[in-house]
Design a protein around this nucleic acid. Structure first.
Length: 956
RNA sequence: GGGCGGGUAGCUCAGCGGUAGAGCGCUAGCCUUACACGCUGGUGGCCGCAGGUUCGAAUCCUGUCCCGCCUACCA
């Protein structure tokens, strides 16, 4: 396979000085797809280990937001890593039909056209929704591609596809036949705005200001006597069928069993005693009971066999049972009832009251408890094995603390109302017989009643809750109900379900129940729940607040004015607009998908909030730029011509080309730097792997970052410079050593790119293509082998630490004394450790180069010639000649500062060691460590004391 | 009312029984053979508060105060 023309490896292609994601991203994705790199292979025999993630399907209504960017990043990291590790990898994409959300959107469009769905009729309306879906349904998929999501697009699924619809019917019919789906008349959550029933989970209750309104019922046949009740919804009194008091409440004993006179409707209502409903300390201690419009009252009504009087139509207006208030809208009726009660003199008071108001998630209208007949799934039966699966560890929830929440919800699970009075969705496969009233439930469209064979049947108007079909997602997308479907056999159970914790119940729990029930095995081995993306201050992103970060703006960049008008269109307040202007005075630069992905990978998973900030994304781009430049720097040293442009070559700085044989079978490292970087690479590969295994991508990215930036760039590349690209006149380096170093450089850089690829797929591919590499590598980094950690070289790591310490000490003295970076200094490195001296001797060039040292003496300790400042680095005493470079006052100040710091540590350590309790009871290695530290501090202190003498020398 | 999570450097957060960490910020100096989206050095913390366990506690326990989120029928 051949990479896109401009990206041919080893071809002359100048790398820009600064990385520009817009030049790179976008070029690779089509090529990857074309090459079929993202395709999972059906392999029922499982000859290769399968890896599968099914995407949490976004709404067809949706376009990309930060939550999507987060899940896309995490899932793609896992998918790409598994693919590189050689697994048969499938990330299956798709979208969800999102019943209410979609219907609401299309109805809004119709309204703008001056019509509505009822005028259109069901069939025409559905045509319209499908049309709309065709237009906008692909948006989110395209946006996921922008982020680099390596999905197998051939297997894209939609919850309303014919196949998915077949699965839904199969599931419904089976559950019905098993008695796990039934119809019942109950009080339900009715969305007046959406004109449908909602499940408990689709209702959001938030505290709002309300009123506790008190009024009196007159006792019938007892002049003047009355009982005062309180309510937050006065209009419901029209449906009252009792007033309840506490059985032990002395105030009302005499009224229990008496009848009250309803002021507006011709009904007598009893005073009943109920200890469950009534809290005698609250309000007046007397509660009006409206069984058809309140969940508690409903239960009370059942206990006392009270009549249920429904006073409301489904559109929120009052019905004939409301007497003089019939036809009024519910909130108008509330005012009217209050006014009439006032006129009649029954109003006894009103207080402000905070109460939880239930609202429909989708339409934000107040949800009304309403009596109606709906379809339910019997949940406890399905929940039981789903609980056991988590208890036994067949499915593991990460982070672990969610397990408790899952268990709690599952064990207290309520039956699930699955019918919705919508048109957009899977119509319930139940047909009612007009003759014998039998309900026929069938996989195929029923033509006749299965009992009386009458053709006078009509299908249930309602559709199923979207989550019912989503619950089948992990297996229906793979081919179920065809139990022999190759994909199903290959990839079920899936490996990881990764999604936001907010849909643990909505979706994850239901997939668990359905998966186990229909497949006999859990739908996934791991459930990984991530937090919610917020703005940098931790506030939820909202269009009104104007703090929404659009991932695409981060990727492509956006100018200030377009950004502002975009936020404005979202409905932001003026204050929010001002904030936005201040936050992004220059708009947002193009950071690229890689930078965004990297940043999203750096947040720890147990965090509930992911405060995404532009500043952090900027950090991601800096990393990409650094990677770009490190490669740009290395390429010429590996003999790749032209990477830094013609100018560089004309300077006569020619490099030997790396031999293919050295790439295919890298020679063993010899120099300290080479041994060290390979050892650190091993450590890093292990840390990255561990982070992935433990769902700590933050650990993986931070290990990678530190390795690449603080080790590979800060030290290794610097150490390699004098070897592979010596200055004119510099000592000649052994050709064979250079050869080995060249191979090691190529090797470590290539491995770094592979380790980074799951996180930043675009730049890593771009750079990898240019890099010389072993001949057995595939054509794309996408399928290049995942690095496995090699051996560590403890000696090299220890020696390198000593070297870094010595260089660091020189550098510190240099800056503390404001010695010009251009000036060379005379340095003496003193130690009685002969091995150390030999090491320093071997690394002479490194010390001279990295600390700008000349001349350099490496000697035994004991003397300090006049004019030298001293400092220590472990066993090494570092002496730097200051005479002529600095003045005495500076040095005095520095020494006093240092002494103060050391004395503080020294005192602490001495105190610790002087306590017998510590030396006797603490583990020996801890005590030994403390002693060693104490010695070190003492030596350092002595050297500083000695350095005091320096001051006079400097004066002199 | 119940449950859960959190309070560590100016900001955002790691660490969760043995010398306080990162990124960003701040600061001094540098355009040093890739990178100023950079390099080198530095500054900065009674680890919410009070007790207890321990030789030793940011880390474990108890209490307490804040701040979030979820959940619940106070009419």
């Amino acid at each position: 396979m051949t990479a896109p023309e401009t990206n041919q490896p080893h071809k002359t292609h100048e790398l820009a000085k600064t990385y520009d994601p817009r030049d790179v991203e976008g070029r690779w994705y089509p090529w990857w797809v074309e090459q079929g790199l993202f395709e999972g292979k059906d392999d029922p025999a499982r000859s290769r280990e399968p890896f599968c993630i099914v995407i949490p399907p976004p709404n067809v209504t949706g376009s990309l937001h930060c939550g999507h960017a987060l899940f896309a990043t995490i899932q793609d990291v896992y998918t790409r890593q598994a693919r590189m590790a050689g697994k048969n990898t499938l990330w299956l994409p798709g979208v969800d039909h999102a019943g209410i959300a979609t219907q609401v959107v299309v109805e809004r469009l119709l309204k703008r056209e001056g019509t509505d769905r009822h005028a259109l009729g069901r069939e025409k309306f559905l045509e319209r929704v499908w049309k709309w879906k065709e237009q906008s349904g692909g948006t989110i998929d395209d946006q996921l591609k922008v982020l680099g999501s390596s999905c197998d697009w051939r297997r894209h699924r939609f919850t309303m596809d014919p196949h998915m619809s077949r699965a839904v019917r199969e599931a419904f019919v089976r559950l019905y036949q098993e008695g796990l789906i039934y119809r019942a008349e109950r009080l339900v959550n009715w969305s007046v705005g959406g004109q449908t029933v909602l499940s408990d989970l689709e209702v959001d209750s938030n505290e709002e200001d309300g009123e506790l309104f008190e009024f009196a019922y007159e006792v019938a046949d007892a002049m003047g006597e009355s009982i005062v009740v309180a309510t937050t919804r006065p209009e419901t009194m029209l449906g009252d069928t009792a007033v309840a008091v506490h059985p032990d409440d002395p105030r009302y004993q005499h009224l229990i069993g008496r009848q009250l006179k309803h002021p507006f409707v011709d009904r007598r209502i009893p005073v009943i005693a109920d200890s469950i409903l009534v809290d005698p300390k609250f309000g007046t201690g007397a509660v009006k009971v409206t069984p058809a419009h309140d969940f508690n009252d409903f239960a009370t009504g059942k206990r006392h066999q009270l009549p249920m009087v429904n006073i409301m139509n489904k559109d929120g207006t009052l019905n004939d049972n409301a007497g003089e208030f019939r036809g009024m809208e519910r909130f108008a009726a509330r005012k009217a009832v209050k006014r009439r009660l006032e006129e009649l003199g029954f109003v006894k008071g009103s207080k402000k009251h905070r109460l939880a108001v239930p609202r429909c998630q989708r339409t934000n209208t107040v949800v009304e408890p309403l009596l109606s007949e709906q379809w339910y799934v019997k949940a406890d039966v399905l929940a039981k094995p789903a609980i056991e699966a988590v208890q036994s560890g067949k499915t593991v929830i990460v982070p672990e603390e969610w397990t408790k929440t899952y268990m709690h919800w599952m064990t207290n699970i309520q039956d699930w109302c699955i019918s919705r009075q919508l048109w957009w969705g899977h119509q319930i496969p139940a047909w009612y017989c007009g003759d014998c009233r039998h309900v026929t439930v069938s996989r195929d469209d029923a033509k006749a009643c299965e009992v009386c064979k009458s053709t006078n049947i009509v299908q249930d108007d309602d559709v199923l809750d979207t989550w019912f079909s989503s619950g089948l997602w992990p297996f229906a997308t793979l081919g179920w109900p065809d139990e022999n479907a190759p994909a199903l056999k290959t990839f079920y159970p899936t490996t990881i379900m990764e999604t936001g914790f907010d849909i643990l119940f909505f979706w994850v729990a239901r997939m668990m129940m359905m998966g186990i029930h229909f497949m006999g095995d859990v739908p996934f081995r791991k459930i990984y729940l991530h937090g919610m993306v917020t703005d940098e201050k931790g506030d939820k992103m909202s269009k009104v607040k104007g703090n929404v970060i659009d991932p695409l703006d981060v990727v492509y960049g956006i100018e200030l004015e377009p950004l502002v008008s975009k936020i404005k269109d979202g409905g932001a307040t003026d204050a929010a607009l001002k904030t936005a202007r201040n936050t992004y005075p220059e708009g947002i630069p193009a950071y690229g998908a890689d930078a965004l992905r990297w940043t999203l990978s750096t947040y720890p998973p147990q965090q509930r909030k992911i405060p995404l900030s532009i500043k952090r994304i900027e950090g991601g781009r800096f990393l990409c730029n650094k990677l770009w430049n490190a490669t740009r720097f290395a390429l010429p040293m590996l003999g790749v011509v032209g990477a830094r442009g013609v100018a560089h070559e004309s300077e006569g700085n020619e490099h030997d080309k790396i031999a293919q044989a050295d790439l295919d079978a890298p020679p063993a490292p010899q120099t300290l730097a080479d041994r060290w970087i390979l050892s650190r690479l091993s450590a890093t590969a292990a840390a990255v792997q561990q982070g992935i295994d433990e769902f700590r991508l933050d650990d993986s990215t931070s290990a990678l970052y530190r390795f690449f930036w603080n080790e590979l760039c800060d030290w290794y590349l610097e150490l390699v410079k004098p070897v592979l690209s010596p200055r004119e006149g510099a000592p000649k380096v052994d050709a064979d050593a250079a050869r080995v170093t060249r191979a090691t450089l190529a090797r470590s850089l290539e491995a770094t790119l592979r380790l980074m690829h799951p996180f930043i797929p675009f730049v890593s591919e771009e750079l990898w293509q240019k890099l010389p590499k072993p001949s057995d590598r595939p054509g794309s980094i996408v399928t290049a082998p995942w690095p496995t950690p090699g051996a560590r070289d403890e000696a090299a790591e220890r020696d390198m630490a000593a070297l870094q310490g010595a260089i660091g000490a020189v550098r510190t003295i240099r800056t503390e004394h404001e010695i010009s970076p251009a000036a060379s200094v005379h340095v003496r490195l003193c130690t009685d450790n002969a091995e150390l001296r030999a090491l320093l001797q071997r690394e002479e060039i490194a010390i001279r180069t990295l600390a700008k040292v000349d001349p350099l003496e490496i000697v035994g300790s004991g003397t300090r010639p006049a004019g030298f400042a001293t400092s220590s680095a472990g066993e090494i005493e570092v002496q730097v000649l200051l005479k002529g470079l600095v003045d005495a006052a500076h040095e005095t100040a520095r020494i006093e500062r240092e002494l103060k710091r050391i004395d503080k540590d020294l005192q602490g350590m001495e105190k610790k060691l002087s306590q017998p309790a510590f030396t006797e009871k603490a583990p020996p290695e801890v005590v030994a460590e403390a002693r060693a530290r104490l010695d070190e501090l003492k030596t350092a202190r002595a050297r500083l004391e000695a350095g005091r003498g320096l001051i006079d020398e400097l004066k002199g």
